[in-house]
Design a protein around this nucleic acid. Structure first.
Lengths: 340, 340
DNA sequence: GACGGGAATCGAATCGATTCGATTGCGATT
DNA sequence: AATCGCAATCGAATCGATTCGATTCCCGTC
């Protein structure tokens, strides 16, 4: 114990933490001695064991880091969380829920967890954390008992957006969805996939759109990126012959996908919105779409993160914050118009 | 101790960790008992105290989370780090070195640290970590004893890039630099700022350019973003009257800044590269620059992250990996041309 | 049949703090 | 002068595992 240096044992703890009464004299003596012995305050590991607090908040991503970080919504959410947590407390521990990553969720040191998306894959981890009394907050995704939820009106918003497309007069419409499960590859959207889907956001947005277009079909993108949107767009627009009719509108489940779809359309010589209406979802201001102003549902991403951060803070303080709900607003851009 | 359930005490540890010999019978008995008692393996905090390992790698950012995440280079580096660390081990703990954040660097639980940029602000934290025997790796930035360095040939690369501009015939050139210190606002570049600069990357790139243009002046951007580049570009191009001559080329210290400068130029009615040559730095493929192919120095960002990740792994295993050096390659795009 | 070797198990020490109750000492109160 | 109260300090218990050395037990060998 580097602390004996001065004189005492447990008094040093008081000198460093400032909790408890201590004379100014000993305090200084202890700090000076610590300085000479190059002791820089308590060991974080021991401290966290004794106190049961580490100051770390775990953030569980659904994707590989690189994919998550390329998504402007995820970044905005992370920023919102960190805004509310502040730097002082500790930090955000990035974890992923992919495959074996689960083990690290169960063996890592943190006080509270925020899930960015919440799928059945997490069932066991959630049980573990519940048993350990670790507060949990899920931003979107499936509901679990004991997990505070920060939600978005994905379904209703998707309906409103589809209704807008419908009102413009479109009847041949296709959808490009976000990944529906752990499989990350471009596929035609089948009812089997829908039935087995585990990604709540994609399902909700699809269900919302199908309120307006009950038989809505299309493609499942490999990821939420402009390139994956491009690939899906090519398929959706370049379809086979026969009785097939090229859709006059495409509903993309994210702005990144929408941007890719627009690129695909233009590469096929189609004009947006003249020959094709494209709508997105998210309201992420994506650079590189200079010529267009995307019609999309704008979601309050940073606010979601902030709400999650606040909830974590309250939960750690022993409070019982309520679930949070956010709503999207329709942004009418220049990428939607009546069919030719 | 939930473990007594079965029978023993320390044997349970063996049952869970798999280290040591144990009969298949007791092992199963213990695991079954644990399951019934809803015991899900050892407490991470206690485990990390005893073992002196938590599996967490601290990543120290220089900026607020939101700024760091908007920078494609930072993201690529983070991805590289996480690729090498793998999910299994634990996770990346995001910390910031801004202001008071230091305290959290010193009190957070982690086994090794990676600095994304390394400024004098970190001096004390580095001393603390050195004393605690925590391996450190710095990606660019100032050199510190005991901190393994992953470096880029910023200076030489900047010289090569400036030489390219010079060879094209440009003599009236301005620079738009990255932030030079903790001050985050747009300012004219003065020698006072240069003398007091703490951000190694900016200084190196400036010094490199000044090998070719000794008196190179310009503006210091508030951050590395397209918007900040736009603001700086407007100032650099819209300058006062008198003996002032509009530069025929602008050297931006990052691609994001360069994109902003191009936007500024076009908003002033200037053509790139007809009326103005713009070069960047980084080689980040930035969407939204569809019409241009930026001339820039391409750096191996993901590779830097990977190297840092590998170094961390080796250091934690007790090895002594060498410093790493990376070099940039000039990409000749369509934004540089001889002056009119 | 005694002994050596190895596997399975247990007890106790340890990791480095925090915390709570107990003790000491000193000045004020009556 | 005895008592009370309060501030400062200390000892010991605790947080929940891992680890090391010791002990037991069983089997094969000479």
């Amino acid at each position: 114990m580097a602390k004996r240096a001065g004189v005492s044992a447990s008094t040093a703890s008081i000198a460093f933490s400032g909790v408890g009464s201590i004379s100014e004299a000993t305090r200084e003596r202890i700090l000076r001695a610590a300085d000479e012995l190059r002791y820089f305050g308590p060991d974080p590991r021991a401290r966290s064991l004794r106190q049961g607090r580490s100051g770390i908040v775990g953030v569980v991503l659904e994707d590989r880091v690189i994919h998550s970080f390329r998504d402007p919504i995820t970044i905005a959410v992370l920023d919102g969380i960190s805004q509310e947590l502040g730097n002082e407390n500790g930090g955000m521990l990035l974890l992923t829920s992919t495959g074996m990553g689960e083990s690290s969720i169960q063996s890592a040191v943190f006080d509270a967890a925020v899930f960015l998306g919440c799928s059945p894959r997490l069932t066991r981890s959630i049980e573990v954390m519940r048993q350990r009394n670790i507060p949990m907050v899920a931003i979107e995704g499936q509901h679990f008992d004991g997990v505070l939820s920060v939600a978005l009106d994905n379904r209703e918003a998707a309906t409103r957006l589809a209704q807008h497309v419908y009102d413009l007069g479109h009847r041949d419409v296709a959808v490009v969805t976000l990944p529906m499960d752990a499989v990350r590859e471009l596929r035609a959207l089948t009812e089997v996939i829908v039935a087995d889907a585990t990604t709540a956001v994609s399902m909700e947005r699809l269900a919302g759109a199908r309120e307006v277009y009950p038989k809505l079909g299309g493609y499942v993108a490999a990821n939420s990126s402009s390139d994956d949107g491009f690939a899906a767009g090519l398929l959706a627009l370049g379809g086979a012959g026969g009785g097939w009719r090229r859709p006059t509108a495409i509903i993309a489940q994210s702005d990144l996908l929408a941007v890719g779809v627009i690129r695909a359309a233009e590469s096929l010589g189609l004009r947006v919105p003249g020959d094709l209406t494209v709508v997105g979802f998210d309201g992420a201001r994506i650079e590189g779409l200079s010529d267009h102003d995307l019609t999309t549902m704008v979601q309050p991403a940073t606010e979601k993160g902030r709400a999650a951060g606040r909830a974590v803070t309250e939960l750690l303080a022993g409070g019982h914050p309520p679930d949070a709900h956010f709503t999207c607003t329709l942004h009418l851009g220049t990428t939607s118009a009546p069919p030719a």
